[in-house]
Each structure stands twice: as C-alpha cells, then as structure tokens.
C-alpha cells in the first residue's frame, strides 16, 4: 500500500467514524469533544449537522490545528478532570478514540456525564478476533484500529467491550446504544467482543 493509499484509507475510515458519531448528535446541538485532536470531528459536525461546540486538547500542535480549522478549543489536561465545565452544560460530550490514551478512565467517564446529559465514546476493542490471534502468536496486536507498535503507542489503557461494559455498570452508567464494527467497517451484531474491532457507545446516567 502506498503512503497515498494509506492516507486515503485512513481518511475514509475517519469519515466513517465521524458519520457514526454524527448519527447520534441531533442537528444544531452544542457538544464538547474531549481529546479533539486538530478539531476535524467538530468541523465535520459543524459542517454536516450545524453542531457547535468546543474541543479540549492538551497537545499544542493539535491546538494550533484546531485554530487553523476554525474550531474553538480549550487547551487543558483532561486527566485533571473537567472542573470549570459546569454541570449539564452540554447536550453531548464526545470522546472519540482517545479514552484509551488516558489514565484516569473512571474519572473521565464520571466527569463526562456530569457536564453532559449523554456521552458518546468510541474505542478500539482489544479482544477483537485479530488482536486475540496476534496475542496467541505471542505478539501485541497491530491492526486497523490499533495501528501502533507496542513501543510507540499513545495508548495506555487496553480494554475490551466486555471490560468497558463492566466498568459502566460499576459506575452506574447506562448504555443506551452500542455499535461495533469489524476492520472492514461492517457492523457486527454477533458477539461484538470477539468480532468488533471498533466500538461506539451512547451513554447516559442511570435514572
């Protein structure tokens, strides 16, 4: 695969991720995107769904990228919580493939559902079939959704769909919707913990 093809594929996959998230965000809403990178998701949501909002990002080059993309970004460390953001001040808070790069998983999830009525979370499923195969062969998996070598990964938490759902139960978080996709981007219904490479959740507080 050439670099150009790789990039085209990554962009295609990204647009697919964005479309899944967008399908859960009603038009015109106000959202918060945690670990927003250079703001591409927010820009997509703004262009396609007339969604407004802010990104939160710690990396300075990404903050610069957000500004270039015309995305409002707050530079701060999410690991320190979201103090300053008021309770229920957003309709949705999104964390798109960034939760696995943060250490304070519980705190972030709890904080997300403090500042917003609903949270949208996506992450790579570590127990995806191909990942299991890599482990059984004695290697850390490198795949479409876990594209990094073990010595070069920004990820610090490796968890599965089953693990994540256990944690939600423990934190009193209600899973309102779940979507899982394989590496080809096909939706997976059967045994997502085995067949899903990437998982998306719509979460709320248990009433």
């Amino acid at each position: 695969m050439t670099e150009h093809e790789r990039r085209a594929k990554a962009e295609q996959r990204e647009r697919f991720d964005f479309a899944v998230i967008a399908s859960w965000i009603p038009p015109g809403e106000r959202v918060l995107d945690l670990g927003c990178g250079d703001g591409r998701l927010l820009r997509y949501l703004s262009e396609t769904r007339d969604v407004s909002g802010y990104g939160v990002e710690i990396d300075r080059e990404s903050v610069l990228g957000c500004i270039r993309n015309g995305v409002d970004v707050i530079q701060m460390d999410i690991e320190c919580g979201l103090s300053g953001f008021e309770d229920n001040s957003f309709a949705h808070v999104i964390i798109s493939q960034a939760l696995q790069t943060m250490r304070t998983t519980e705190r972030i999830l709890t904080e997300m559902l403090r500042v917003a009525a609903e949270a949208v979370v996506s992450f790579p499923n570590f127990s995806y079939r191909a990942n299991r195969a890599a482990i059984s062969e004695g290697h850390m998996p490198v795949s479409e959704d876990l594209p990094y070598d073990w010595f070069d990964t920004p990820n610090v938490r490796f968890f599965t769909i089953a693990d994540f759902e256990n944690l939600c139960a423990r934190l009193g978080i209600e899973i309102r919707e779940r979507l899982a996709f394989d590496e080809a981007g096909c939706e997976v219904c059967e045994d997502p913990n085995l067949n899903g490479s990437l998982a998306f959740y719509r979460l709320g507080r248990k009433s």
């Binding site: 300075r60 409002d72 970004v73 530079q75 300053g84 953001f85 008021e86 001040s89």
Partner: peptide, 15 residues
C-alpha cells in the same frame, strides 16, 4: 475562559 463558556461565547484558549 469558563465565564465565557458559561455564556456560550466562542473562545479559543491556549496555554
């Protein structure tokens, strides 16, 4: 920044 957020104003914050 957070007072601006409260008022739903557009803000970019860089540290």
């Amino acid at each position: 920044v957070f007072a601006l957020l409260h008022n739903r104003l557009r803000v970019v914050y860089a540290e």
